[in-house]
Amino acid sequence: MIASIRCAMLAFSIRQDYTMKRRTFIALPAAMAAVALAGAAEPHAMPAPIDAARFHAMRKFATTRFGRIAYAEQGQGLAALFLHGFPLNSFQWRGALERLSPWRRCIAPDFLALGYTEVAAGQDVGPDAQVAMLVALLDTLGVAQVDLVANDSGGAVAQLLLTRHPQRIRSLLLTNCDSEIDCPPAALKPVIDMAHDGTFADRWLAAWVKDKPLARSREGLGGQCYGNPANPSDEAIDCYLGPLVASQRRKDLVHAYALALERNVLAGVAGGLRNSTVPTRILWGADDTIFAPPGGHYLDGMFGNSKGLRMIAGSKLFWPEERPEIIAGEALTLWGIS
């Protein structure tokens, strides 16, 4: 009898132990998933917004033969390179850097003659020199390959960089910019004419710095290039244009930048774009009056590994600054992250 009771108790104990282990086993994946999600949430939390004060504080410089190249950097890991428009600088990409730095080492340089880059004496600032400068910058920073994001004249430089150094580009996200059939766009002619006369910096840029509402007017930078009439903000105007009119040398460099765009700097790139295997996504502000929608369709059909064209309604040339969430979402998809 005692033996029977002991056997029964032993069997109950074995069943209870099995049940507890089974429950633990079933619960383990869920617990592990919760831990994984908790761990993932921390590094992917949204960084603090980048205002002008923080932008100035985070600026770095890389010394190259082209001069001291100003750049903003945020994040770590695989690198992404952001190329701004004219007459902007890396501040244009602040919203994208906030959103994408959890997944990439985001690097946004200021082009030669624009922003806070200190150009070496006698240095050319045309697109060919910009390409060479970017290669030197990446080498200085120890970056072998990048995911490239570009806008406006930065998009022209991106196409040249891709065709000349394809091994340096992992993917390309291209927004409103020059194409071989629209380079330079007709809307740039007044700027080029004033640059020839040496008056562009004073007549437009300095006037906009002095009169912010004028800068946001229909005839100003805002009306020409932004969809939201409240843009660019006062701090953005000062950040973009203030350095360009700070001295006569800076004004001369701005004029040199504009004059370098007078010729078709993309002549002959078609073959390189067709042969490219780099995954390329085209995003186009549909209301842009400087680079019209046909340019986006042309580029979509030209790239050998195009991932399609998306038209962004209600958006003009500098929409990436106004709608960084679109840049971030499309970039993550292109990079295979979401």
Results as ranks from 00 to 15, higher is better:
Ala286His: 12
Val265Ile: 08
Gly155Ser: 09
Leu273Lys: 00
Thr117Gly: 04
Leu81Arg: 01
Ala246Gly: 13
Leu283Val: 00
Met58Arg: 11
Met58Glu: 12
Asp288Glu: 05
Ser233Gly: 09
Gly272Trp: 03
Met133His: 09
Ile169Gln: 09
Arg203Gln: 13
Asn231Trp: 13
Cys177Gly: 10
Asp147Phe: 10
Ile5Met: 10
Phe55Gln: 09
Tyr116His: 03
Leu141Gly: 07
Ile169Thr: 02
Gly126Val: 01
Asn275Cys: 12
Leu253Ala: 04
His44Ile: 11
Gly39Arg: 00
Ala8Met: 07
Leu28Ile: 06
Ala328Asn: 04
Gly220Cys: 07
Gly85Asn: 08
Leu10Arg: 12
Phe303Ser: 02
Ile181Asp: 15
Leu172Cys: 12
Pro213Glu: 08
Gly155Pro: 00
Arg250Trp: 07
Ala136His: 11
Lys307Gln: 12
Ser306Leu: 07
Thr280Met: 02
Gly271Lys: 07
Cys183Tyr: 01
Ala30Val: 14
Ile327Thr: 03
Arg59Lys: 12
Asp211Gly: 06
Ile14Cys: 10
Gln76Ala: 15
Asn305Gly: 07
Thr199Ser: 04
Thr19Trp: 13
Ile107Ser: 04
Gly222Phe: 05
Gly223Pro: 12
Gly268Ala: 06
Leu138Glu: 07
Asp128Tyr: 09
Val157Gly: 05
Ser90Gly: 14
Ala48Asp: 13
Asp51Arg: 05
Ala62Cys: 10
Ile69Thr: 08
Gln224Cys: 13
Gly271Thr: 03
Pro213Val: 01
Val135Thr: 15
Gln123Trp: 04
Ala215Ser: 13
Glu42Leu: 15
Pro324Ala: 00
Gly336Trp: 04
Ile290Arg: 12
Val119Ile: 01
Leu112Asn: 01
Val35Asn: 06
Glu325Trp: 10
Lys316Cys: 04
Leu160Trp: 03
Ala27Phe: 02
Ile26Ala: 11
Gly296Pro: 01
Pro213Tyr: 07
Phe82Ser: 00
Ala144Trp: 12
Asp193Gly: 05
Asp211Ser: 15
His165Tyr: 13
Gly285Val: 04
